[in-house]
């Protein structure tokens, strides 16, 4: 039995109210997080659980909020009515597994292309957009004061931060400069009511079943900012998986998203501000991609990393279609 399996077995008895942990299997080889699945055995019955932890137990990525905060965000989200996997246990140093937490296993699909186009999700797609709007309204109801360590960013700071990231890549992309100029000329003032935003709410980070939205995942980029940022990000071209007439993640219309959001108590959506964040979304993803060239040369010289860096131009054509069609 591996060291981790052994530690989880002990955790099952000490913290999770079970008799044993079995069947440990790695789910993803994520660069920023490890995800493991295991079975909690109790009176002969097995319940699947998920362990999410920092790579190797304790390496912490720079941009992430930290797994303990991620767990408390999910707990607050659950209390606010957002579908999330229930957090069972946040790891402590004497659990001997590093940083992370154990949560319920939720059955469903996260692959964006299948959610946008798969036959199995045809019924789900009819309700998914509205459910996303409702989930976002619930997220934006969470009191940001409960999370004093999360980053507070104004729209101008956010745009400037990504512009600096682009400039640091030291490779001219005139379309990016055009888009940054466009954004700076239209930058909304700091929001009157900054809200807790998920920060990465998109097709790819939601768990969907045949019946619709089952869980909102990957809370590590959460921060406190303009709530419309989340509304724009899910509409960015990069998450439409080829379904162009469905701007919301390749499965819905903006108006459906906004209607679900407003009906669930979210503030009235200003289409111009939503467009600002949609353009920013494409550019933000572009800056993330162009940073991959540097990662390739330093941290991860894999072919896959090199090829992802070459996907930056996808966002350049997306931006041109938004701004110069």
């Amino acid at each position: 039995m591996s060291e981790l399996a052994q530690a989880l077995d002990t955790l099952a008895r000490r913290r999770l109210g079970g008799d044993a942990a079995t069947g440990l299997a790695r789910m993803t080889a994520g660069a920023t997080q490890e995800i493991w699945r295991f079975m909690l055995v109790k009176d002969g019955a097995e319940t699947p659980l998920i362990l999410r932890r920092a790579p190797g137990g304790d390496r912490v990525s720079e941009s992430a909020t930290g797994l303990e905060i991620e767990a408390s965000l999910m707990e607050a989200a659950e209390a606010a009515g957002v579908p999330v996997p229930h957090v069972k246990w946040v790891l402590t140093p004497d659990d001997g597994i590093g940083h992370g937490f154990v949560m319920a296993f939720v059955e469903g699909e996260t692959l964006g292309g299948r959610i946008a186009r798969g036959e199995a999700f045809a019924e789900a797609r009819k309700v998914l957009t509205r459910q996303c709007g409702e989930a976002l309204a619930a997220i934006h109801r969470i009191d940001p004061a409960a999370f004093p360590t999360l980053k507070r960013v104004t729209p101008l700071e956010f745009v400037t931060q990504y512009r600096d990231g682009y400039l640091a890549s030291n490779w001219p992309r005139p379309v990016f400069d055009l888009a940054f100029r466009w954004l700076l000329d239209r930058c909304p003032p700091p929001p009157e009511n900054p809200r807790l935003v998920h920060g990465d709410f998109r097709n790819g980070n939601i768990m969907v079943g045949p019946d619709g939205l089952r869980a909102v995942l990957d809370w590590e980029l959460a921060h406190v900012a303009d709530p419309m940022e989340d509304m724009g990000w899910i509409c960015a071209n990069s998450w439409r998986f080829g379904v162009e007439d469905k701007p919301v993640g390749g499965f819905g219309l903006r108006e459906e998203l906004w209607a679900g959001y407003e009906a669930a108590g979210g503030e009235k959506v200003d289409p111009e501000r939503a467009l600002f964040w949609e353009v920013f979304g494409s550019l933000r993803w572009g800056v993330m991609c162009c940073g991959m060239a540097n990662s390739f040369r330093t941290a991860d010289p894999s072919v896959e990393r090199a090829v992802i860096a070459r996907r930056t131009s996808e966002t350049e054509i997306d931006l041109l279609r938004l701004l110069a069609a």
């Binding site: 005139p174 071209n237 080829g242 131009s313 054509i317 997306d318 279609r321």
Partner: peptide
């Protein structure tokens, strides 16, 4: 900007749907 971006996409991602859509448009 259109000419240079289309040229880039024809090398990097000729199957990207946004590129195909731009060509059609």
């Amino acid at each position: 900007l259109w000419a240079t971006t289309l040229a880039k996409l024809s090398v990097d991602q000729p199957t990207y749907w946004g590129y195909r859509a731009a060509l059609a448009e």
